[in-house]
């Protein structure tokens, strides 16, 4: 079945220069394998293709059931240079919660 990421994860995003990062945390550790399978760097890159012009890298934190995505060239220059409303990448996290992912009922538990 299809669900949005919000059902099994929560997020926070921010900036470092022209980079933005999005932390994606499983609401329960048993969802972590689903995150690993469904929320890939390619999908995140595609999801933000209008805004993010550089590569997206995914890092894993199994100890806290979380993933960290680093998005390069993501903020129109970032900080004080960017002309965007969201110059600090604050909204990427909330927006990613709308990502559609595929899970089985077993996985949802």
């Amino acid at each position: 079945m299809k669900i949005t990421l919000e059902r099994i994860a929560h997020t926070r995003s921010g900036d470092k220069g022209d980079l933005s990062n999005i932390g994606v945390i499983a609401r329960d550790p048993r969802y972590y394998p689903v995150l690993l399978r469904e929320v890939t760097a390619e999908r995140v890159k595609h999801y933000f293709s209008d805004l993010v012009h550089g590569p997206v890298t995914r890092y894993e934190l199994p100890n806290v059931a979380a993933l960290n995505f680093v998005l390069e060239e993501a903020l129109d220059g970032g900080g004080t240079v960017s002309l965007r409303l969201d110059a600090q990448g604050k909204i990427f996290g909330s927006q990613l919660l709308g990502l559609e992912i595929e899970v089985t009922e077993d996985e949802l538990g």
């Binding site: 926070r12 932390g23 945390i25 960290n68």
Partner: peptide
């Protein structure tokens, strides 16, 4: 959420 905030 704070642990993963603004890290690479």
């Amino acid at each position: 959420e704070q642990l993963v905030y603004e890290i690479q």
